[in-house]
């Protein structure tokens, strides 16, 4: 299998604070990886490093075979400029905890913005594809609504459609259900479940252990900026070896 994401002893600092400590991880094509862990453990930071919303300070990160943020010329590393970083970001789609839909655009405009403005596709083609995506997330009838008129769950489903419209090879989810009312979590998870079944490579930071168990191929438990334990959902959720994983799982379960 081809690896889509590969991190080698990746480190990230915020001034003195060591946010990510020697992270090594590989995600293969078609794999669904769930990252769990207490808040402040670095799981969102790791996700944001993958699409360069955060810059890494040490170590290497490859996404879809390309070194992230740098270019090797001879035996030197050159930082990529903004346009090149923007181009690298095209291989990943991202879904945020707080949706971040563009409030001044309708649902349909939100979805075709990237395809039309960045990928320069024809509006007609982009529209057709957007409508298909909206149907897939069950919101075809909301195409002309503004985000503020939608519930949190609906907004998040539009955000997923917006990310998919860019035809990414990898989807990143940063606690996609944490800002939702409990009764709206299900609709978003079900869209993500369908997406996983299409073979999309996904990295999901989540607190939904049930979802993680059902959908993910592999799970990672992070704490204190490190990967404490990695393994199959059963290994992590049912028979964790690391004491910190054990106490986290039991705390979440109760």
């Amino acid at each position: 299998m081809r690896s889509i994401v590969k991190a080698v002893s990746l480190n990230k600092y915020y001034d003195q604070y060591h946010a990510l400590k020697d992270i090594n991880i590989e995600v293969e094509q078609g794999e669904v990886l769930c990252i769990i862990g207490p808040s402040g453990s670095g799981k969102s930071t790791l996700l944001r490093c993958v699409n360069q919303l955060e810059k890494i300070d040490k170590g290497g990160l490859w996404v879809d075979g390309e070194l992230v943020g740098y270019r090797i010329v001879g035996n030197k590393l050159h930082e990529l400029n903004e346009t090149q970083i923007a181009r690298q970001r095209l291989s990943t789609g991202m879904v945020f905890q707080r949706f971040n839909l563009f409030p001044h655009m309708t649902v349909l405009q939100n979805i075709i913005e990237g395809p039309c403005q960045v990928l320069k596709r024809s509006p007609k083609e982009a529209n057709e594809e957007a409508l298909e995506l909206l149907a897939r997330v069950g919101l075809a009838d909301k195409r002309n609504s503004y985000p503020i008129e939608l519930s949190g769950g609906q907004q998040q489903r539009v955000a997923i459609a917006r990310a998919l419209a860019m035809r990414p090879k990898l989807m990143l989810f940063d606690e996609p259900t944490s800002a939702l009312d409990p009764e709206l979590v299900g609709e978003v998870l079900s869209v993500m479940r369908d997406l996983a079944q299409t073979g999309m490579t996904m990295i999901v930071v989540t607190h939904e252990l049930g979802f993680a168990r059902e959908v993910s191929n592999r799970m990672v438990f992070m704490d204190d900026g490190q990967i404490m334990e990695a393994g199959s959902p059963e290994e992590i959720l049912i028979s964790p070896q690391n004491p910190r994983t054990q106490s986290f799982i039991s705390a979440v379960r109760t």
């Binding site: 919303l53 789609g93 945020f96 990237g114």
Partner: peptide, 22 residues
């Protein structure tokens, strides 16, 4: 909101385009 800059970046927009469109 900074989330808007991030969302614009996440669909591959460079800074000036994000400023103009979003």
């Amino acid at each position: 909101d900074t989330g808007q800059y991030e969302a614009a970046k996440s669909i591959g927009m460079p800074r000036l385009q994000a400023l103009r469109r979003i």
